[in-house]
Design a protein around this nucleic acid. Structure first.
Lengths: 250, 250
DNA sequence: GCGTCTCTCCCCATTTCTTGGTATGGGCCG
DNA sequence: CGGCCCATACCAAGAAATGGGGAGAGACGC
């Protein structure tokens, strides 16, 4: 029963205690579903703290070296399609999602020659946080296990969630780096308001707004308004919806 | 068999030809899964273009009126949590995702008093495109159908994809909104560089950088450097990884 | 050829942000 | 109580960004 497969494999993915664990769980999942390989890519928000992108896969080393060495991610149509889809997609259907440039076609064909014939990619996004994708791939002369795509969709999402957890991103909801008033000022600054406008909105003096933003910059150890906003966004103190939604209603 | 349920209900959701169709399909899906109500929310084009928002639900009218009338979305903890999760989540677990302010707690409790006791919310995001969530809700004295959450996860995602299609939103940022050079300047600006520093980095004159950023601001119809950066970020023209990974290496 | 776009460069005036200070009052905690 | 954090308010000087104008070279398509 396929859903039991989701629950069994999903559990091993979600409870992976290390990247190696996750690698193993994904490799087994890919095999059980009828795929040959997998690749999980995660671009993790770094904020004021350092972070990095995460790549877990069992692609041929020959391809991985080329892909990373020449930064083929920049011309990878799968990656770009992943940025435009809410649901998982088969690589055959990429053209339905995005047009392909010559360079991208080349990247795609080169991958195929390295044994990555067809695949199913599950994308997941969090604005200001993570852009992730999990691909399950079949080798030459083999087609995608159609009945398993729905399972792949679930397991891919779980893998991304798990990788996000393992990457140490904890949601930072625990301690806010800014005081309430500082956050207010940063939020309105993110909405494009000047210090003076913020002072009118919050009903405090112009100088006080300057002071709050000054203190906030100091906490994030930056000298730039834009960087302050980006850090606050990363930390989850403000969100894109906070920033943009307000404009929809007014 | 639950997976058959996904495929059956999923098909009716994905092939809905109108919002009314979708409403009907979702209502049936919610019932079949053991939920009492559903709500699908879609913020379309919430980046640079202020877009429409779509709301399909069968919540009690009394609650919907209050929610919309008082713009409770601004203080809805479910909405905030939906922005910070890649997987669906039960409302009991919201505190694992985001802290709740007093106002948010009030909104939540008020919803409960209107008969929205517990729920499972499936979030989906596409940078520069859409923020969506689909909630399946149970009434008072009833708990979430645990075994069906995985089905809800799939159907919720399908509903969001379907609503996105029905909304007719074509996805403006298919092709980059900025020229290469403009994007370069925005990226370095996001990295906290001044116009003069960017000019040294790119090897062009100070005035040219000013011009590129001027043109970029105009394209996004904004007057603020910070807003320009946020739009480019939300659109996916630049990513947090782009902004911060560079600092790790240098 | 002509128009459009991109990238490049320049000037000037004005606004806004950033940094360096100082200061008062309230609340909380050991 | 003294110390610390928070919110508030003010001043002055300098750095940076923004808005307004103009302009030439090269690419590309019609």
């Amino acid at each position: 029963m396929r859903l039991a497969l989701v629950e069994l494999l999903g559990d091993s993915i979600l409870t992976a205690s290390s990247i190696d664990d996750l690698h193993e769980a994904l490799a087994r999942a890919a095999g059980d579903m009828g795929f040959d390989r997998f690749a999980l890519s995660l671009e993790i928000g770094c904020g004021a703290d350092s972070g990095a992108s995460l790549l877990v896969h069992d692609y041929p080393a020959s391809w991985a070296d080329v892909y990373i060495g020449f930064n083929l991610a920049a011309t990878d149509p799968v990656r770009r399609a992943a940025e435009r889809s809410v649901l998982g997609f088969g690589w055959q259907n990429i053209l339905d999602l995005v047009p392909m440039t010559d360079m991208e076609r080349t990247t795609f064909e080169t991958g195929r020659r390295h044994g990555l014939a067809d695949g199913f990619t599950v994308p997941r996004h969090l604005p200001g946080d993570v852009i992730g994708s999990c691909s399950f791939v079949t080798g030459l002369g083999k087609s995608l296990p159609q009945a398993m795509l729905i399972v792949a969709e679930m397991l891919g999402a779980m893998a991304i969630a798990s990788a996000r957890r393992l990457s140490g991103w904890t949601g930072r909801s625990a301690h806010s780096r800014l005081t309430d008033r500082q956050r207010d000022c940063v939020l309105w600054a993110a909405r494009g308001k000047t210090d003076w406008e913020i002072s009118r909105i919050l009903g405090i003096s112009h100088e006080t707004v300057i002071q709050h933003l000054k203190d906030a910059r100091e906490r994030y150890d930056t000298h730039k308004r834009a960087s302050l906003i980006l850090y606050a966004l990363y930390d989850g103190l403000i969100s894109f919806a906070d920033i943009f939604r307000w404009r929809i209603r007014h």
